[in-house]
């Protein structure tokens, strides 16, 4: 169970055994291991408690609010009736991410990316065109809803990369490298796990940190040379 009661995370979403790295095979292994060995012994325990929880009413204010939120978002998207297709904006998002938020990134590049992403988001919310109606199967609307999320996460990736003035793992800030071109960490500043808190539609997210304190082991730099 996550820190939210009743919300479970298991399989790919869990990162106990294979690190935070979610690349192909390790994610798959995590899913298999959890499904085959962990779940049969754990899930009952959690679900047993859930039996006591009464069925939620869809009249609860939270539910009504969430439903209204989604409905408003859909209405907004359908009402824009601009000139750009969802796919063309999606492609532009892809180009920005590819150009500036790839594995190797720089301060300037990330600044450009953040600027461009803000503009693109604005363009999306003012000039996207979605044909058809909202109450039938509408693949363009479906894509638009996803793209609105992609625009958020894209921006988050840029701001996170910009914030971290070091190179570490898949995040290679070109300014921070050793003479041999290896990743250069700044453990004195960035030794923490973090997440970004959403603070509203038009304000930047807030960084929440939890320091990483090692007591028994000593931190080392991983490299592929020796």
């Amino acid at each position: 169970m996550t820190s939210i009661p009743g919300l479970f995370a298991i399989g790919e979403a869990n990162f106990s055994d294979h690190g935070a790295n979610r690349l192909g095979a390790s994610a798959l292994m995590q899913g298999l291991a959890d499904g085959y060995f962990v779940l049969p012994y754990t899930i009952q325990n959690y679900l047993a408690d859930q039996i006591q929880v009464p069925r939620m009413s869809t009249d609860l204010p939270e539910f009504v609010e969430a439903e209204k939120g989604v409905q408003d978002k859909i209405n907004k998207l359908m009402s824009i009736q601009g000139t750009e297709s969802v796919d063309s904006i999606h492609k532009r998002l892809g180009h920005i991410m590819w150009e500036y938020v790839g594995m190797g990134r720089t301060k300037e590049g990330l600044e450009t990316a953040m600027k461009k992403l803000k503009e693109l988001k604005k363009e999306f919310w003012s000039n996207v065109y979605i044909p058809g109606e909202a109450n039938t199967l509408n693949t363009e609307l479906e894509k638009a809803l996803r793209l609105s999320d992609f625009l958020e996460i894209g921006y988050l990736m840029a701001i996170d990369g910009y914030n971290r003035n070091e190179s570490c793992g898949g995040h290679f800030r070109e300014e921070y490298q050793t003479e041999e071109g290896e990743a250069l960490r700044q453990d004195d500043q960035y030794s923490y796990v973090a997440c970004w808190k959403y603070t509203g539609e038009n304000s930047d997210p807030e960084l929440l940190k939890e320091p990483l304190d090692y007591e028994e082991t000593e931190r080392k730099t991983r490299n592929y040379k020796n």
Partner: peptide, 17 residues
Amino acid sequence: LDVLNEKLVKERKEPVV
């Protein structure tokens, strides 16, 4: 087919599902 759909959306028609 994506190209076709892009074209249809440009013509303000509904794309092929």
